[in-house]
Design a protein around this nucleic acid. Structure first.
Lengths: 254, 254
DNA sequence: AAATATTATTCTGTATTACAGAATAGAAAT
DNA sequence: ATTTCTATTCTGTAATACAGAATAATATTT
């Protein structure tokens, strides 16, 4: 929307921080940072130095490399406290997790993707490595389909006609097929992900409405395909739908 | 240390984000932001706009006000995954929490303060509202005293002679008295906080060493004074000290 | 142990950019 | 309908962030 020019040094500062997420590597030398972002070494130094002084990066005395600073932790704390959706939804996620023992997520729309904003992980040994706060695709996740199904038509079309990344052989990458599936989601009031993001992994998701045809967030339960099927046999869908109505009422009072 | 000049717009951008933590208010108008940081409105707009486009702020369509963006959540996730101390210490915190039912913290030094980097909260109803990632004082917390006790002498003196904020009537605000207490901490191998930060609240903390006389982090258990006393009667101190040695060995191999 | 390579950090002039102030648009209140 | 807010956009300029060169500090090789 806003056509105003972004402030270069701020963009660059954050892209340095984001670099640590992308690479998964905990430490980077100044040189690596400069190369990865195609910055002049001294330019990179200025940014890195500023971030270090602010506590958002820290330098390892041993090898001089930089790592993410612990002060970044403060933000997630504040975000969680201040975000009414996270505050309200969390106990419900725990409730579902207690009953079915699977991983439960809450996600919201961010641009043309979803961000998982909260989770309660399965007690079992199998890990689903979702990253809270990172952007995920709409077309191959249960929560994504819930959100996509109620997006404004023009946004929806842009996503449908945009690139639909193939994650597994079950990923729906055809616009027409996805359009039909989204209609089904609207009709049924829930979305599924049947091994579309990873083989063996399925998920069941419901939208939480803030008003007619407007989705505030989506809640999903994911786990091994057979276990999700079991959970559905034991009333998971009904529980999720009841929950979604309850949350809706609690936050948006309708 | 570094005398290099920080990049102004990066500093300002972060001070905008930090504003939301200080005030505790979830939403701020552009005007409020500009006033709070004494920035020209259009300067503030440029920064706010950049942060919004990056997803670190979000604008409420209704009232045009700004709030922290959910993308900030992604950092704490990465920090936790990448930080070896948090990864290693967390299960031990849970272990202590299970045994004694009190709130357990892990903190590290940051400049002349401490940052709580992880916690497991008491199961009971009483909340100790520690903010993960935020800077706290050294002189009035158990973890702080553990860290202060093993700081390089010049740093220690700077803190001792600096302002020592009064939190309760029990807070040690006299440099000489604090110096003596710190000696005791070194001799005994643990630190206490007896209602020095809040009336009714006590804490027991131990340092985790990364080498001789070098503290990597500190671990504390806090709760209502009588309950902490009970826990000590049941072996809390010994458990903490064993834990600290164990963690030390596991991370720093000695 | 000396020499070389590599990397972080400082210095400096300048082109660029972020800034402040004024102007505009848009909403809310009167 | 008028006024009073506040958020945005526009624009010239002063200030800043930038790039490149120089230096310091470390590691590596000979």
């Amino acid at each position: 929307m806003s056509t105003t020019k972004s402030i270069q040094s701020v963009e660059r500062a954050f892209s340095i921080l984001e670099l640590f997420q992308q690479t998964g590597c905990a430490e980077h030398s100044l040189k690596e940072i400069a190369q990865a972002l195609e910055l002049n070494k001294s330019t990179a130094f200025g940014l890195v130095n500023t971030l270090t002084e602010l506590g958002y990066l820290q330098q390892n005395r041993e090898n001089q490399k930089y790592a993410l600073g612990l002060r970044l932790l403060s933000f997630s704390n504040t975000v969680k406290v201040q975000n009414i959706i996270i505050r309200t939804v969390h106990p419900y996620l725990e409730q579902i997790n207690r009953k079915y023992g699977e991983t439960v997520h809450c996600a919201v729309r961010q641009g043309d993707g979803v961000i998982y904003i909260d989770k309660v992980e399965a007690t079992g040994s199998i890990h689903i490595s979702t990253q809270i706060g990172t952007l995920n695709d709409l077309h191959c996740t249960g929560v994504g389909k819930c959100i996509l199904a109620y997006m404004p038509p023009e946004d929806q079309e842009r996503v449908l006609n945009g690139p639909l990344k193939t994650m597994t052989i079950h990923t729906v990458t055809n616009a027409e097929q996805l359009r039909r599936e989204i209609e089904t989601v609207r009709r049924q009031g829930y979305a599924t992900d049947s091994e579309e993001i990873a083989i063996g992994l399925s998920c069941l998701a419901v939208p939480v409405f803030s008003g007619p045809d407007t989705v505030a967030c989506a809640i999903s339960v994911s786990g091994m395909t057979v276990r999700i099927q079991n959970a559905r046999d034991n009333g998971l869908l009904e529980d999720l739908q009841r929950l979604a109505r309850e949350i809706s009422r609690q936050i948006f009072g309708s």
